[in-house]
Amino acid sequence: MKPRQQRMLAVGLAVVGVAVAAGLTLRAFEENMMFFVEISDVIAGEYPSERNFRIGGLVVADSIQREEGSLDLRFSVTDTRCELDVSYTGVLPDLFREGQGVVAHGRMADNDLFIADKILAKHDENYMAPEVAESLGKHVQDQTASLGGRSSECETG
């Protein structure tokens, strides 16, 4: 190959590479957006019934029920308007606890139970010592204490 052709090939490859990368990113983000459903929408019956999707919200206080001697788990998540029951079997992230933000991947079993095959925990951008958090009354479990129960704004489908 002549040096000039080599150069053209290199420049061409770089341009193609950037284009492919940009395309992949946008596609990935789109998928990320498309298959994320708000809990209020799930409760209203607006969710893809034939495929997996993701939901996100806070774990409701006092809603975690564990099956003795197994990894089976039931809990509720809330988007502060509606609540949805979730069942999951498997290992949980260390941050999973009442009041924590979680993302669950799975599908609806019937109209009121979400069967998750993956649970991820989210945390915010705030960092502080446990004592400081305590004195601020920021104990995680308190965050959703007031959020229990479906609020009147939640519309079922």
């Binding site: 990113t25 990935a28 983000f29 260390d94 941050l95 999973f96 649970i119 925990a121 989210k122």
Partner: peptide
């Protein structure tokens, strides 16, 4: 891995753009 519960999440905007 210990905090979120995953090493990698495909399609996550921050993770994907940093890989790019």
């Amino acid at each position: 891995r210990p905090m979120w519960g995953t090493w990698w999440e495909w399609g996550d905007p921050r993770l994907t753009s940093e890989l790019i």
